[in-house]
Amino acid sequence: MSPEEPIVHIVDDDPRVREAIGELLSAHGIRSSSHASAREYLAAPRSDAPACLILDVSLPDINGLDLQNQLTGPGQPPIVFITGHGDIPSSVRAIKGGAVDFLTKPFSDAALLSAVEAAIAQDCEMRAQQAEIGVLQERYDQLTPRERQVLPLVVSGLLNKQAAAELRISEIMLQVHRRNVMQKMRADSLADLVRMAERLAIPVTHSRRPGRS
């Protein structure tokens, strides 16, 4: 994964607007690609670079807000809406839908650029997180089924003895498994392992209750 230059996708049915935004971004050294409709954007090949989507609300094929609804999920770039006549319901909807900003035409360069930068930063952050989870997932995939059983018990904070009893194995064996888990997950400490488990959304199945006899 070589870090690529960020890219801004511009979707607006007006060629003049696309052109102008592209020019402005270019003047600020940001590369861009422009699309006349939602369909054109969806059909275009996507690079792996951090990205941002400048989306016009009124598009010829589908409404930009509806497109926003479709573009949910990981890997989708953050959206900066632009509109010819902004109304409150649309902007509220856009922001609620996770848009970075909602700009009414004509907009200032500062507003657009800051929105774009914020969006790209957000995308980078998201990507980094995704990448980390990917690495962790890869490590987790190396675990044996038994080790996968051990992991939640350990991160739940059970004592070795308790975890061993839970799995009906000897404490020694549990310690071996636990060591393997730590090694394979490359966890420096139990706290590290707990954090990783959190990232991987491994549920904490047990909680150690002090009062339990």
């Binding site: 102008a20 003047a27 657009l112």
Partner: peptide
């Protein structure tokens, strides 16, 4: 009417403004 007027005018205006900013930048 109003929407189309706004759109019709805002579109070129938006382009003009944005281009102006770009021009300044260049």
């Amino acid at each position: 009417l109003s929407a189309s007027i706004a759109h019709e005018i805002n579109q070129p205006l938006a382009a003009v403004v944005t281009n102006s900013h770009a021009c300044q930048r260049w």
